[in-house]
């Protein structure tokens, strides 16, 4: 893929690390469950992009195959997460995760 290699690999690594860091900060700072889901997706997708970039630079398809696996798993995870969110919303009528404090000691 010659067109892709015009952009140096370092740029991809820096960009993906930045995306990953934004995702981590989002999970740690935000209190809305939906925004946390989005941040987790951002973390997973930064890994996807990194794998795709490495795979293109190495001319090795394994990385791109792994991306498909990650996408499938991420879809399953979001399905579960949204179902759990609906359950929480039914009993508390909010999606703020600060209501999840019944189990503290």
């Amino acid at each position: 893929m010659p067109n892709l290699q015009i952009i140096p690999l370092d740029y991809y690594i820096i960009f993906c690390s930045a995306l990953f860091a934004i995702g981590v900060v989002g999970v740690l700072v935000k209190r809305n469950a939906l925004v946390i889901f989005m941040s987790i997706e951002l973390m997973l997708n930064s890994a996807n992009l990194l794998l795709a970039a490495f795979s293109a630079y190495r001319n090795d398809p394994a990385g791109q195959i792994f991306v498909f696996f990650i996408m499938v798993v991420a879809a399953a995870e979001v399905a579960i997460g949204l179902a759990l969110l609906v359950m929480i919303y039914r009993s508390t009528h909010t999606i703020d995760i600060n209501v999840l404090n019944k189990l503290k000691w």
């Binding site: 690594i13 993906c16 990953f20 973390m43 997973l44 930064s46 890994a47 990194l50 794998l51 970039a53 490495f54 394994a62 990385g63 792994f66 990650i70």
Partner: peptide
Amino acid sequence: LFGIALVYG
């Protein structure tokens, strides 16, 4: 996953 991506890279 990010760790696996870096190790693979």
